[in-house]
Design a protein around this nucleic acid. Structure first.
Lengths: 342, 342
DNA sequence: TAATTTTGTTTAATCGATTAAACAATTGCT
DNA sequence: AGCAATTGTTTAATCGATTAAACAAAATTA
């Protein structure tokens, strides 16, 4: 095997010190170095296929040009789309991304953060799991820049990029009500994650503001592991009460996909028997006979903003940015007004 | 901010040399070190919240416990699912994954490989783009272990994990023919990537072996950028000839999703007017009135195998493994026999 | 011409860990 | 007691780059 070429090798071949090699390859000390020597060094570097050892450089410069990305699950299309955008934005500034999935577990989260910090990442983009405030406090104490994405802790005042989930859920439910639905249900997760509590709050307030009295069995909160039977039971619950819901808001793409498959298998007519709105884009529903009305998150902009903020924090200013974006309600057949159906 | 704690800090506090600290923290020189000192060092490390600087360690040990993952597009569910598995397997052995999307471009691929190698990754898992044989030759020359996934170059004899694409396409087309279809079409990519040429070969051979003479306008090859109009035109082409196809095999999940949406919008009945088989699992079609018959790749096992082989190659043996797995034909309504429909 | 600047390059410390080799102090053996 | 083996710890080199500071030679200035 070809063993790795170091600056020392170049220095020896050209007959100069390694300092000079370093200066030339980094275009430093511009006015000082003789053009001839500089050229010879560059040429030799090319010739030997020299590549700088980033590990060595990082040790000295204390900069790795690497950022860590922690999401709940990289195989979830929402997060993998974010990852794609983040990767691209990072790449533009020559940063590389290392990633990990927390599975919504505070413990895994902590493990990942440590693994990344041990690797001296320059910063992190995190979709934080529940009860990970201490993780963030740790990062803060150690002056490691980070940006939260999707969820956040309103009390912490950290960098963050998210949508206004209250508002999103609110308009979704208003839309359902406007369409003639009198008993909108909610299927969400049992969690204190802010994005989801906000979704629930938006749902409840939309009911109240429209003079609808919320009934306890209109809503179900599931474990975050997206257990299929759990979701199916929740659907059953909402539909089997004596006064079943006439519409549902699903609080995530996975809930909606799984729930919809089940609803479909039960032969329930959408939107006739049940109107449906979901969070997040999903290919899955484009082919359903009644494409779902959904809340579209601006994933591209979120990823770009998060990366921009992180890199700014890394490179210089320590200004904290809290960015709220708007989700867009994309109206399709799954919520066609009840009247227009009959 | 709390500045970082090094072994030196521990050494000073305890009053010993850094060598001793290193030995203790790595559980080396077991019999030699006095229990008391060892305990004190460990305790002080805990107390100071010491974390080892992996960059420094890597420089010395020439090992980063990092692997690079290069796929065509991390936001493609096929690849993000693979990524998830790889991440988990890697994590079990304390490896971290850095990733990048090549967009099927040899140039981006090369850029990514260099970025990763500069960061001294211990190895790579790659879904190689077209014309990247030289990239792989480079890795080989430099003794950097890698495993190809999904696609490979049969002449190179590298580590690889893939399915038998010829066989997969073959059984899919046989299934179409057995169902009464006489003019199966193919929508695939215009590429020399082995997995796709194999799919085409399987398609053609299945026709021949069943005494069906392939006609040129049964198949379309598209650019790998998954351009929507391109896909729609291809569907138009296959369906608009004087003797249109009666069934289609889509060579990827994206082609199938996009194609199916279009077919649906045209009001074409599946499988009545057109039977459909696609490669790869897609939520998207579960909700279609005729769930698609598809070729299911064993993503979990592929990811596990790839990671296992890579780590083995990294840690010791240099044995080359070429693994072919089987895709499973999952038969659903989109290919119900023509007769049973009429 | 002597003193000063400028130009071109080298020296050597450093980043934070690892680790072979050296060393000193005990302990064991005969 | 005398020598070897064992135990406990330190010294110092090293990984590959960066970079402040030193130095020597050439060019400029007075």
């Amino acid at each position: 095997m070809k063993k790795k070429v170091s600056q020392k090798d170049i220095a020896q071949k050209v007959g100069v010190s390694t300092a000079l090699v370093s200066y030339v390859l980094n275009n430093l000390k511009q006015g000082r170095i003789s053009k001839a020597v500089a050229e010879k060094i560059k040429e030799t570097a090319r010739e030997l296929n020299y590549r700088t050892n980033q590990i060595a450089r990082s040790l000295k410069t204390n900069k790795t040009f690497t950022i860590g990305l922690i999401v709940a699950d990289i195989s979830n299309p929402f997060f993998s789309s974010l990852a794609r955008v983040i990767e691209e934005e990072a790449d533009k500034k020559d940063y590389t991304v290392i990633f990990g999935s927390s599975d919504e577990s505070a413990q895994k989260s902590w493990k990942l953060i440590n693994a990344f910090v041990d690797r001296q990442v320059d910063g992190l983009i995190i979709a934080p799991a529940e009860n990970t405030e201490d993780n963030l406090a740790y990062l803060r104490e150690h002056d490691i820049p980070f940006v939260l994405i999707d969820r956040y802790f309103p009390d912490l005042g950290t960098n963050r990029v998210s949508i206004d989930n209250y508002q999103a859920a609110y308009i979704a439910v208003e839309h359902l009500i406007a369409g003639g639905n009198k008993r909108p249900g909610l299927i969400t997760y049992n969690t204190t994650l802010y994005n989801l509590t906000e979704r629930k709050r938006g749902y409840l307030d939309a009911l109240t503001d429209n003079n609808i009295v919320f009934e306890k069995n209109w809503s179900r909160e599931l474990t975050t592991d997206n257990d299929k039977t759990g979701i199916e039971n929740a659907v059953d619950d909402l539909l089997s009460s004596s006064k079943p819901v006439d519409s549902v808001l699903f609080a995530s793409n996975i809930l909606a996909t799984t729930g919809l498959k089940y609803i479909h298998s039960l032969g329930i007519k959408v939107p006739g028997d049940l109107a449906i709105v979901s969070f997040d884009q999903m290919d899955a529903s484009d082919l359903f006979y009644a494409p779902l009305t959904y809340l579209k998150q601006p994933i591209g902009e979120m990823g770009q903003a998060a990366t921009r903020i992180l890199l700014q924090n890394i490179e210089d200013e320590k200004k904290i940015e809290e960015i709220d974006m708007q989700a867009m309600l994309v109206i399709r057949s799954s919520t066609l007004p009840v009247n227009s159906i009959l």
